[in-house]
Design a protein around this nucleic acid. Structure first.
Lengths: 353, 353
DNA sequence: TCGGTTTACTGAATCGGTTTACTGAATCGG
DNA sequence: CCGATTCAGTAAACCGATTCAGTAAACCGA
């Protein structure tokens, strides 16, 4: 079997207590030559401590539970996990995965599987920016919400700053000279709840809409509600919505889309109407789904969701929660604008200013 | 703190040995009323066994290590993890994550972190179908390769059946009446090795090329090497390669692309040349990156990489390896053709048959 | 009534470490 | 030269379960 501490101790001719202290750097009162003997023996035998035994005694598993609500449907998960992973690794922690789905019972079970394994903390990630109800079982152990926050902000959380991201996108369009800017928002609804429950409409949609209006107002552009619409957040939804917005004389010169998939749909609509991007129509998306943004022509200017950074931050917080019990804080992570080639000054600047 | 088994035992007025047996269903020789007392006590106290202690004693952590070589860069990871997760969950196993990168030293360290935690088996996943050298540390514990296989097939592994997938794509094109079919393959090279080392050129590229030629030959279509080209596997590579293939009088009526990103590039090339898809040009991709396939117009017919199924299969194998030690086997998972709208019969059937 | 089984449980060892309290020897101050 | 420290290290308890060997009581047949 595996080499045990006692094997090392025997070889070095010391007690396992001594060997333990040496290998853990608590060798304050151990003679240098003894330390050497232990070190040499450990090396010779290729000793690796049994983390289970260590955790049991020290009541610290050096493991963080990562609970997420649907790994497969979005490619976002990877970035969040990687960010968390990266930080965990640097601190000698490992990530224990569990995923919850719409089945309440199964979800509780998954969470308990994590807790039973004595994870030191859990990171609770959602695939879309959400406001969730924190599972009761989580209140005992340190928890960080990732891409979600609790309704009362009583749990440390990190979410994308959708408002600022949308603001940047809109400011960019306005700076390019656009005055008539359409907004295709997500049609909220039929998000299946799950053990994690939406309490209000998705923050992303409301924040981006707010930013859309605020930027226009700030620049003295009159509100025109016919320029705003909602649709399912997929390419088809985007195409249909964009067609409605664009197929008229006073069409907007730019479109701000809820996400890149809808933006891709808007591209299709524009082409069918004979509108060239960016000459006749500028488009900005959201998410920076590189797969889409680089696959469509021209490459899409969009706003990045900082999944990697959020993952990192969440793990950093989780780890600090282990020593200090800090006040819960909610971090809004910036969403930088990623400029590609779908935005240009309008061909025929509208004259409403 | 947490409720321990001894707390339950005390409440039920039995020894912890008895409580243990009752709760583990080995209560063969325990009186029904005693069983009840224990059950009631456990329920009342909300007892949950400490998995660490249990694992230490039973020498089984009920945890599988999931080692992967780069979670973030591709959206494939999610599906593989989810598949593995799903099966693990069903059997009461959890997934412990680790990722390796190009840094050998760091990678060894990650793997050891898994092994130290006494994972019962390890699934070693790569983001691209590869032939890898299995890390020496893995030879002791059960291991399954996911989306990769070892050079000598001495380790159980599951890979996509790239040959059959490409065959299906080509047969589909031929069945639609195409005789002049272009093939844009991946330009192998500058794949950074890593602790996991490529030994030959990527299997996906060679298998798909083989299938391309075999299908043509099978249908008596003469080989025309000017219809085949290679490029970096991104949209730009696809666009450049497709332009070269299409911008000539005897252009192919269909294009088989190494992946969906290149196919998207081919769309761009076609449009610039005034070719309508699928009327003037049929296109088939590979990967079934839904994000791309549904975002471009028309939706892309492509071949699916069965990541979810491979993830499931790998975990199933890993779990069976725990009880029986079966012969290593290598499974080639089918890659189904996903028909969308980018394929149609050729406009002007070529006359070379 | 008595030896032998069964029944229904318990004590204690164990997994592989960590940590505390303690001890024998060396050292030191006076 | 003696009692008090310091030094270097060890025995044993402990983390929270599982499990084997053992035992007291009940039961059983002759």
């Amino acid at each position: 079997m595996r080499v045990r501490l006692s094997d090392v101790a025997a070889m070095a001719d010391v007690s396992s207590a001594t060997a333990s202290m040496v290998l853990n750097g608590k060798a304050g009162a151990i003679r240098p030559d003894t330390i050497d003997r232990v070190l040499v023996a450990a090396e010779a035998l290729g000793y690796r401590p049994n983390a289970l035994a260590r955790s049991l005694r020290s009541q610290q598993s050096h493991t963080i539970g990562f609970l997420s609500d649907d790994v497969v449907t979005t490619p976002y998960a990877g970035a969040m996990i990687l960010g968390a992973q990266e930080v965990a690794d640097k601190h000698g922690f490992a990530l224990l995965l569990a995923n919850v789905d719409s089945d309440q019972e199964a979800s509780r079970h998954s969470l308990e599987a994590l807790l039973d394994r004595q994870v030191d903390a859990v990171i609770c990630a959602t695939m879309y920016h959400r406001i969730i109800e924190v599972p009761a079982q989580l209140t005992n152990s340190p928890a960080v919400l990732l891409n979600a926050r609790s309704d009362d902000n009583s749990v440390t959380a990190v979410v994308p700053d959708d408002y600022a991201g949308a603001e940047a996108a809109m400011e960019h369009l306005v700076a390019m000279g656009h005055r008539r800017i359409g907004f295709i928002n997500d049609r909220a609804g039929n998000r299946r709840p799950g053990f994690i429950i939406d309490q209000t409409s998705p923050p992303a949609a409301v924040e981006r809409e707010q930013a859309y209006h605020d930027v226009l107002r700030r620049h003295g552009i009159d509100r025109d509600d016919t320029l705003q619409t909602r649709a399912p957040s997929d390419p088809t939804g985007g195409r249909v919505a964009a067609t409605a917005l664009l197929d008229r004389p006073d069409r907007p010169t730019a479109l701000f889309c809820y996400n890149d998939r809808m933006a891709a749909g808007a591209y299709v609509a524009a082409r069918h109407l004979g509108l060239a991007i960016p000459e006749d129509l500028s488009v900005v998306g959201f998410d920076n789904q590189v797969l889409i943004a680089e696959a469509i022509d021209p490459p899409l200017t969009t706003v990045q969701l900082p999944h990697l950074e959020m993952g990192r931050w969440a793990m950093e917080q989780a780890l600090t929660l282990l020593d200090e019990n800090a006040e819960p804080r909610v971090r809004r992570m910036p969403c930088p604008l990623v400029e590609r080639e779908s935005v240009a000054p309008p061909n025929h600047p509208s004259a409403d200013t």
